[in-house]
Design a binder for these strands. Structure first.
Lengths: 338, 338
DNA sequence: ATGAAAGCGCTAACAC
DNA sequence: GTGTTAGCGCTTTCAT
């Protein structure tokens, strides 16, 4: 069974390619009878439209790009689900690109996105991203772009985020009210706005409660898994060690748990732990892990919906749109007062 | 900054489009001097090749499709990473499609893949897939296809899988040698070859040890999360309840843990648990969960490499290639003798 | 070493 | 209501 094109289909039907094309796109110019015949023969001969020929003509790719720092993280998996659910409904295809947290990768991915391969881009920036030129370039080419979760601040780009500052504030309050006197915040990167907002909320809460030592309570953990493990282990074996930890992402909490297991620190007796995460296994961890859960699916879905507004309505202005979907603190054993 | 095409670039350079095209693809027909000039001006004017025009001409999309039952599962996330790592190296783009475990979805996705949009397909079939016509159709169009992890048996299609039968056998042996006298196997679907192979290994071990009651030890859990929870709860509250469980996928183990937490069954004292999974949080669960871990990244990577062999070498025969990458049983507390 | 031109499969403007 | 045809941006053969 060889691929057949529109010309061959037209010949088979004894009509012109124009008629076939119009029939397939359900044009009102074509009689119902002809339409039916075309559809039938098309399906009989297993005809499919060549998407790239269409794209070339229409200057529309029916494809969007999703650019992620990594995919082995519950948040991003769920976000992809949300994105996919709306792309599917719109008949769009989804290209996945991974930056692996590297700025250089992110740059060349976005460069690719300028080629016309995609009609729009959803992106969660890498932890190294300190410059927005690659994003500006997309906008200059009139390619709609929407940040989800991890934005890059200072640009006029639409975004769907969560209430990071507020949750950072809450996280500190929560630990303090459960008895912590020396809580710290583990950040992935001081370049990541989302982390800084969470950290700022955390610091502000400490200040409001007249506690802690400002910058010293924010610890950046941006090494490899092994390096981070050691870093946390060192931190938890010093004399003046913290009695509470807020982890800004999933994998930092996992490292904290592993360290505590190894050096016999008891959670929550000796150390209270709280993490920004949608980790599904949180309730069955030892001990059950308190989380600040982002509405991951919803964030992906909303970002995609916003992007399609930008794609579909030429005049729609995607600039400066910001949608904030709140996260929710779910208290489990790991942060309980003892 | 408007998108510029090859014709405009050629005009700017005072050469023909043919020359530009050849220069950009580093043809030996073109002088080094001209090549340099073309490259320079191209980059100065932010020129990018239109990928769809190229695809149309070359009948090559430089794109592959990855079809998954779901994405919120550690195994698939890691597999995507593996796939992406080789696609990136080859300069290929990756389209992600989700079947959500529905056969109908899988069918229409594969139908889309026949259009020429992709040069090859990697697929893990849905748990509903009982018919391979949609896969045959792809092959008839000469589109390379490789199964990874979840294959559909009875077709001549390349696959990268793990040693499911053997691991099923091992899982039963392991539970029995740790004291279980009444172990059961939780399957997602009796239609899924991968599950059946694991279950067959499990049953065979029981038979070899003269234990258990054949079919009765295989329990199918194919409902919603809530239904499965109830099903497991019911199972664990009957008089003749099992003292060991092998879960065929990640989410079933999570349900088992939640049920045990709710009705106060102690793992591993009252019930030993073992799961086929790459769950990263396994070591910090309560209790640490014994796993049979698939080499997920490697499976994805190997499947992609195999697929590219099929894509790149027209004569290479992708039929009947099977690569088996072994899983490994990692013993933790949840399955320990008490 | 470079240029001219046909054509990949499709859409849409225009002609009938 | 249907047919004809130009052209989307590119590659490649053939000519020069």
């Amino acid at each position: 069974m060889n691929k057949i094109n529109m010309k061959e289909l037209a010949k088979e039907l004894n009509v012109s390619v124009g008629t076939v094309s119009k029939a397939l796109s359900d044009s009102h110019e074509i009689s119902d009878q002809t339409k039916k015949k075309v559809l039938e023969t098309a399906s009989r001969l297993n005809y499919t439209l060549n998407p790239y020929a269409s794209s070339l003509r229409n200057k529309k790719s029916k494809t969007i790009a999703v650019v992620l720092p990594e995919v082995a993280d519950n948040f991003f998996s769920l976000a992809i689900n949300g994105i996919q659910s709306v792309a599917e409904k719109k008949g769009y295809h989804v290209l996945i690109y991974l930056s692996h947290e590297k700025f250089m990768n992110e740059k060349s991915i976005l460069c690719e996105c300028c080629s016309g391969r995609v009609d729009g881009v959803l992106i969660s920036v890498s932890s190294e991203t300190t410059d927005g030129d690659h994003i500006l370039k997309l906008q200059q080419q009139n390619i709609p772009i929407v940040f989800f979760d991890r934005e890059f601040e200072g640009l006029h780009v639409a975004k769907v985020i969560t209430n990071d500052f507020e949750c950072g504030y809450q996280s500190a309050e929560h630990l303090i009210s459960n008895g912590c006197t020396n809580p710290v915040f583990l950040s992935v990167s001081s370049k990541l706005a989302i982390c800084n907002n969470r950290a700022d909320g955390f610091k502000t809460a400490l200040k409001d409660k007249k506690m802690g030592d400002g910058e010293k309570t924010i610890i950046e953990c941006n090494g490899t898994k092994e390096e981070v493990f050691l870093q946390i282990k060192n931190m938890l074996t010093t004399k003046n060690k913290p009695d509470g930890i807020v982890a800004s992402v999933e994998r930092l909490a996992m490292s904290v748990y592993l360290v505590c297991q190894e050096i016999n620190i008891s959670i929550p007796a000796d150390l209270k732990v709280l993490v920004f995460s949608t980790l599904e296994t949180a309730p069955i961890l030892n001990p059950p892990l308190s989380t600040i859960s982002q509405p991951a699916f919803e964030i992906g879905k909303t970002a995609a919906e916003l992007l399609f507004k930008g794609i579909e309505k030429k005049k729609y202005n995607l600039t400066d749109e910001t949608i904030t979907l709140p996260s929710v603190l779910i208290e489990r054993t790991s942060s309980q007062a003892f």
